[in-house]
Nucleic acid binder design. Sequence first.
DNA 1: CTTTTTTTTGCATTTTTTTGCAAAGAATTT
DNA 2: AAATTCTTTGCAAAAAAATGCAAAAAAAAG
Lengths: 249, 249
Amino acid sequence: MIKEERQRLIIEKLNRDQKINLLELSQLLNVSYDSIRRDVIELEDKGLLKKVHGGAVANSYLSFKNTHNYSADQQEVVMLTRKAQKLFYNHQTILMDGGTTNFHIAEQFPKNLEMTVITNSLPLAAVLNEHPKIETILLGGTYHKRYQITIGNQVMKQLEHIRVDLYLMGFNGLDPEVGVTLRHYEESVLKQKMAQAAKKVAICAITEKLHTVETYKVCDLQDIDILITSLKPSDVTLNAFRQQGIELI
Amino acid sequence: MIKEERQRLIIEKLNRDQKINLLELSQLLNVSYDSIRRDVIELEDKGLLKKVHGGAVANSYLSFKNTHNYSADQQEVVMLTRKAQKLFYNHQTILMDGGTTNFHIAEQFPKNLEMTVITNSLPLAAVLNEHPKIETILLGGTYHKRYQITIGNQVMKQLEHIRVDLYLMGFNGLDPEVGVTLRHYEESVLKQKMAQAAKKVAICAITEKLHTVETYKVCDLQDIDILITSLKPSDVTLNAFRQQGIELI
DNA sequence: CTTTTTTTTGCATTTTTTTGCAAAGAATTT
DNA sequence: AAATTCTTTGCAAAAAAATGCAAAAAAAAG
């Protein structure tokens, strides 16, 4: 039995039962315990499950948001959020705003990461509850019910007193010509201010958002320092970004 | 059976029954009492439930609203939150902090109530999502994971620029002699500031909290303007409050 | 078709985690 | 205040994980 087949079976069983037991599985598939364990390690690296003592569980096992319907895009998001983890290390202070991508990145922070996160997103603050070593600071302001973030003058004011190592910017569209664009005006202004408060600006772009242009412009390409993408380094699309001296991950 | 599976089953049972008993559960799952207890401790650390003597109860607002078998306490809360609705009318600006009582009061706001609510509680902001005509303003600051509120200097600063019609204060203990007391120091200071920012201060006290004294004092009885209680107006306990000119509901 | 290189696999050893137990200490009830 | 019930703590046995190593299998190179 080849490795790929085993791993496929593991994922299938995991989807059925929501959990697997290593010993049981090794007997079922008639391979050594170690092989199964190594398979599970690989699958965890791919972000397809979560390893626990004695077995593995589906990724969203104990979380509130297991209602998230995983689409075809999901695979790319998982990969991107895993890549994004390279940006974070202990004793940093970072700024993160709303958006599902940022939410997923925060979800995957290592449990022992010691960091300060400043945000205007309530779901983000909620998810950071799971990370005891992360200090969360919430920017106060008018609460926007749909996006579940705070916006407005008060947020802007607080940003004036803030200087962070990194700003992880959520956005709607990214285009080599136009720059970063957004659907919501108030947010676009806010994000400009946030970018000014950070030493470096990073964005995490699923392929779908590349070459997309929305109504309100946030900033030019040159204002971005780091781009996380799932495209291969050889992809011609990335040349424009490279010319601007943007670090690619 | 792996730990994660047990923990999932605990959470599931908890969501069904609203409470669990450790001994019963250890027999049901056929593991030692200690294992269950350790699971419950872990789950409490993750904020998924609250440990009590001999068992655990569902943690928050997330679940206990859709249950029908309210305990005696809960029935009182329901009655009190109904009474509290008299305090609110259109075009007011009110200040509300954290705590389950305030949460339940906000839940029961009429859907057409037009009001501005300023709060430092994330669950409160979340529940006000259901009330389209209420404008929510969130006070920013350091996020306290356990209480799910913002605290600290930044909150204090924002309060300096605020003047509201009513402050609905959450608290732990109320005593005619000592005044209003709290378990958490930082919060007690914050509440003092909040009281100063309001024209009137109201508190909503279940009978259990009357004559309870906690570690940190927030304010004297005379700083309270309105008390919502389920005691009958004839109750002698209330005389002390009446003498201070506190309006009783 | 060999030989070399790489990958995969199973096994033994060490290290870590989990688990159940018992005794001591708190809290709750009677 | 005594009795009961539950918690906490330390400990040791058991279970599982990580690590290093060598044989087997597969892939690549010659």
